[in-house]
Design a protein around this nucleic acid. Structure first.
Length: 479
DNA sequence: AAAAAAC
């Protein structure tokens, strides 16, 4: 349990969903899903959204963010539900925007479940798939629409959707949308909405650009902040293995095979790298599939589904899968490449250890990655003990390696998936580097600059594309 | 640097 969770438990007497005054139709759906008590972000967000206030929320999916905004939105929209008394065609009342197609699909799944008994209709539109089915759904009328920006604008242009009565706008992963250059699209979409509306914006960071966007879009927002839950959570162990660049794919295969891992998400930095690693793993008999932007959307969806169903062992992904994706009980994430930004590291490893489960995050690094690793440690305010990983069939011969030390047994995960020790992988041959105990992630304070503002002065926010973003923000309609 | 996103 995170510190944040503990604090929330102390501050708020145990709440049940019933205590928010949510309709019985919604509570029944929650009960179907097996949800009984709201998470900290839900406790904060639900009353505020029900009041009709704008929200600036800092939280990642997995904290219960999606339900945090969906449930109150559904409650607010109940009077507009499609009953026998009302006309068939309804305008879109709430619009949820997400940066990636998979995330849109996932949010739509959740919304559909929560709204199951309400008569409210939802639809999801994103690119890469046929428009016809989406158009049909839109023309039949939906109250809640989930979309990626580009395809939504496509539908707008084809006049299959009307946003003139969309009085609730939700921007999920807003910082990612800015990163991906969605600002002009956001601007166009917002121009189609009524001036008077409720705005909910969720972002992993409060960068200057996000604050600026919030200032132009949000109206006297309530700020809801749930601490970065996954990166520093006790339930995710973080291991960093030093490996020669040439040995990285062998190392991944070794980790998967020595532990008989059945569900592991492996991140690479490039699409080509993802495909290449997938082939290598397949060659070693590990059932693998790649998911990245060069794949067709049907391929991407099939890959994700096969992974969730346990039909493949390793899903090799670019950062398309880094954010928000909720894969139930995902036990392990491996960074084949360290991500370009420390922020992305947090998002990637946040795919595991969700909903209180334990998880392992393993990162491979080679000599060239020292700087990236230092950036990550600075962001998560924690030292990641470096460990050498040897004893597997790498390109370098076994004998070239320095002294190895076989860790004694009794570590790793128990059959129940609970951690019996901080050591994620008992059969891996390890070598201690440095003085610290490699099994414990000791919190530490970065030596330079104020710890609270680490992100602000990191070079990741100083890039030139951000300047373009700042310039574009000037063009947004003021309230 | 790379990735993501409409056709």
């Amino acid at each position: 349990m995170s510190d944040n969770q503990k604090m929330a438990d102390k501050a708020v007497p145990v709440l049940r969903f019933e205590d928010f005054g949510l309709a019985e139709k919604i509570l029944r759906a929650l009960n179907d899903q097996g949800y009984t008590s709201p998470t900290p972000i839900q406790q904060q967000a639900i009353p505020v959204v029900l009041q009709g206030r704008d929200v600036m929320g800092a939280a990642q999916t997995g904290t219960g963010k999606t339900a945090g905004f969906s449930l109150p939105v559904i409650q607010v929209l109940l009077p507009t539900a499609n009953t026998s008394m009302s006309p068939a065609r309804h305008p879109v009342r709430a619009l949820i925007l997400t940066p990636t197609r998979e995330l849109a699909d996932q949010v739509a799944d959740n919304v559909r479940n929560y709204a199951h008994y309400t008569g409210l209709r939802s639809a999801v539109v994103f690119g890469g798939v046929d428009m016809a089915a989406q158009t049909t759904a839109l023309r039949a009328g939906v109250e809640i629409l989930i979309a990626t920006p580009g395809r939504l604008l496509d539908h707008v242009q084809q006049k299959s959707v009307n946003l003139s009565q969309t009085s609730i706008l939700i921007m999920d992963e807003a910082d990612r949308m800015l990163d991906m250059g969605f600002l002009p699209d956001l601007q166009r979409i917002i121009n189609l909405l009524p001036q008077k509306r409720q705005n909910l914006m969720f972002s992993a960071t409060f960068s200057p650009e996000i604050k600026k966007l919030a200032a132009t879009i949000l109206n006297n927002p309530v700020t809801i902040e749930v601490a970065r839950s996954n990166a520093t959570a006790d339930n995710v162990s973080q291991a960093v293995y030093q490996v020669d660049e040439a040995d990285k794919s062998g190392a991944v295969a070794h980790i998967i095979q020595s532990q008989n891992l059945k569900q592991v998400l492996v991140f690479t930095n490039t699409r080509i790298g993802a495909s290449r690693l997938t082939r290598l793993l397949e060659k070693k008999g590990i059932r693998s599939t790649a998911i990245h932007g060069d794949k067709t959307q049907p391929e991407r969806m099939a890959a994700l589904e096969a992974f969730k169903q346990g039909e493949i062992d390793a899903l090799v992904a670019t950062d398309v899968a880094a954010r928000g994706l909720d894969i139930a009980e995902l036990p392990c994430v491996i960074n084949y490449d360290l991500p370009f930004t420390a922020e992305d590291y947090v998002h990637r490893i946040g795919r595991t250890g969700r909903a209180g489960a334990s998880g392992d995050a393993i990162s491979l690094y080679s000599a060239k990655d020292e700087r990236s690793l230092a950036d990550i440690e600075k962001l998560i305010k924690r030292k990641l003990p470096r460990t050498s990983l040897t004893g597997f069939d790498g390109k370098k011969s076994f004998s070239e390696r320095s002294v190895q030390r076989q860790r004694e047994g009794g570590h790793g995960m128990t059959s129940s998936g609970k951690r019996s020790d901080r050591s994620p992988y008992k059969s891996v041959v390890l070598e201690r580097k440095g003085k610290h105990d490699p099994w414990f992630d000791k919190p530490y304070e970065p030596s330079s600059s104020s710890s609270a503002e680490v992100k602000e002065d990191s070079k990741s926010v100083e890039k030139s594309p951000k300047k373009k973003v700042a310039a574009l923000l000037g063009g947004l309609p003021k309230k």
